[in-house]
Amino acid sequence: MPPDKQLTETFINIIREHERLIYKVCSLYTSNTEDKSDLYQEIILQAWKAYPQFKAQAKVSTWLYRVALNTAISTTRKQNIKYHYEESILLNFPDPLGGDEEQYKLLHAAISQLPELERALVLLYLEDKSHAEIAEIMGISVSNVGTKLTRIKEKMRKIVQPLTV
């Protein structure tokens, strides 16, 4: 198999294996389907651009979280980002939770009120990542992760309270 093709195949396998991670980052940083699709594509492109430099020193998921979160934070700051692929892509994002859709909307509404970096912290917490892994992805100390999460929990409580009334 030619090296380029092999590289593409390996990359696609990684994306296939971690696709949910990208979907979840997109879900948390955007609200409509079109923006989600745009962000999804941008994350894949950024990951592809970074892939040749990926030396497997970090876990694939750690690397992909960094790419996805960095891309999500920078992309969502810009407005009206449109891509010009020949094939118009609008991904079919699955319905959040079926019956629990209201709860999911509440979760989304609460998280979207947090600053972008805290949102990334919350996402990693929801993903059940260890404090060490969160620290590695975010670039803060392990003890700081605990402190920040405690504060964010408090903050979230205050955000959610008026939303549930």
Partner: peptide
């Protein structure tokens, strides 16, 4: 809703994604 409850909800969302997403390889290529 506490952050702990949100985690449970998020895990359900993850399961839902697992069951419903199929990578569009042609699109990625």
């Amino acid at each position: 809703m506490e952050l702990e409850n949100m985690k449970t909800l998020w895990q359900e969302y993850d399961k839902n994604l697992q069951a419903n997403t199929i990578l569009n390889e042609r699109m990625v290529k």
